[in-house]
Amino acid sequence: MQGPESKGLEVRGLSKHFGGLTVSENIDLDLPPGARKALIGPNGAGKSTFANLVTGILPPSSGTIRFDGEDISALNEPARVRRGIAKTFQITTLFPSLSVRENIRMPVIERKRLGYSMLRAANGDAGTEAEVQTLIDQFELGPLAERPVDSLAYGQQRLVEMALTLALKPRVLILDEPAAGVPSSETHLIVEAIERLPKDLAVLVIEHDMDLVFRVANSIIVLVAGQILTEGTPQQIAGDARVRELYLGGAHG
């Protein structure tokens, strides 16, 4: 089914109910290669649920998710990761006592399907080590590489989080609140890291920090009560009266 041009991720009519509670309703979303989209919305709008539906952590109640034309709605999380759909966590979920280098080595090993290799040392593969070093350099983590990640500042941990996810060589990357909990003095690190992501990677940023969203996304989707309210360029969204009300009138009223 895979055509000469990759179609990326296509979500159609995606819904999720928990009992009688609808958290996602009839969501359509396209994420072609190179996309830089952001998903915003008030607390409880169903942003994280949507991310979990796309990555396969939650099964959808109805609707389809296609990736390069293939229906992946029924696949579990590991299977989707192997096809190239990856997500960073809202709350940093690293391997706390392992070093930065070991943290980043882990996904490289798994992507290369070496996870069941029992007799060769984990750091014994030159190709893997070179790749790990490249990621460490890309995120400027060199001086911290041998330190356990739980000894790092939170902003640095967020960078490890992104490096770890990028090590999977994903084609679709979902960043779930990449700047959550990061002091504003360190937010620029996150923005710069997002700007340095590979150009053909499809990126969806879920974020509260409007400043960050406007700097990294060229298309913004507004989610309210599980439904898409509107989608448009940052200028359109900034000028939309309903969105202004949500963020200025409603929230601070």
Binding site: E77, A86, E110, T165
Partner: peptide, 17 residues
């Protein structure tokens, strides 16, 4: 290494496939 990863963070191991 992967066993240590599972020990420390099973959720993350799932997220790396």
């Amino acid at each position: 290494l992967s066993l240590r990863g599972i020990h420390e963070s099973p959720a993350r191991m799932g997220a790396i496939g």
